[in-house]
Design a protein around this nucleic acid. Structure first.
Length: 209
DNA sequence: CTCTTGATCTTCT
DNA sequence: GAAGATCAAGAGC
């Protein structure tokens, strides 16, 4: 019998998830680049909040210049953080119910950010299962609202630096194959292929085609 | 498996 | 007053 495909994927063994290997902590400089460089480079990185989280397997890029971005119409109280310096967290309320987190990129005034859409859970599984009321690790963080809930992210983290506690974001330690596709759940600028994922991952919110 | 719908709040028109 | 960077549950296939 050939080995299951998952056996050779980063962060997984044949039978279970293994703790992520952590690369160097990401600095503000990492985020101070084009959102189209940062977004794919975040695939395979590990994101923890108070020690709980996992490997980033899916993100989407947003930029002030396109109408799907919250920053498209200029700064508002909600989107103020996006217009600030890179390396900070932009947290917003989605559909009145969920929280979602973005990493602000580029430079002050660019209002560009990467929405974190899915994690492969690796650290603090018990805490995440408790917060989500769910056992299945595959769906624990397979969506922007789900992972915010699992990591206990709320507007309390809006505007905080990504390079200091409670955040710990570490570079990847392998070279992933990147899948790309159109962004999900939007109607404007829906054709832009600004969704990036870890090719073949079972932990994404929706499969890449 | 896919499709539909309700929940609930912020922002902008 | 309507739309929205979502999710979970229920119905139907």
């Amino acid at each position: 019998m050939p080995p299951r495909p998952s056996a050779s994927r980063p962060g997984e063994s044949a039978t279970s998830i293994v703790p992520a290997k952590l690369g160097r902590p990401l600095t503000q400089k990492f985020f101070a680049r084009s959102v189209h460089e940062v977004a794919p480079d975040l695939i395979g990185a590990t994101m923890l909040v108070n020690g709980v989280g996992g490997m980033i397997v899916e993100v989407e890029a947003y930029h002030q210049t396109e109408p799907a971005a919250h920053s498209y119409r200029g700064p508002t109280p909600r989107t103020m953080v996006m217009f600030g310096p890179p390396g900070f967290a932009y947290v917003y309320r989605s559909y009145g119910i969920h929280w979602c987190i973005n990493f602000v990129c580029e430079k002050e005034g660019s209002a560009a950010a990467v929405l974190i859409r899915a994690l492969q859970p690796t650290q603090g599984l018990a805490a995440m299962r408790r917060r989500r009321g769910l056992e299945d690790e595959r769906t624990l963080c397979s969506g922007p609202g789900k992972l915010a809930s699992a990591l206990a992210i709320t507007d309390a983290q809006n505007g905080l630096a990504l390079t200091a506690p409670p955040f710990a974001i570490h570079a990847r330690t392998f070279t992933p194959e990147i899948a790309t596709g159109v962004r999900i759940g939007i109607t404007k600028a829906a054709e832009l292929p600004w969704r990036y994922g870890l090719k073949g991952s079972r932990f994404v919110s929706k499969r890449f085609v």
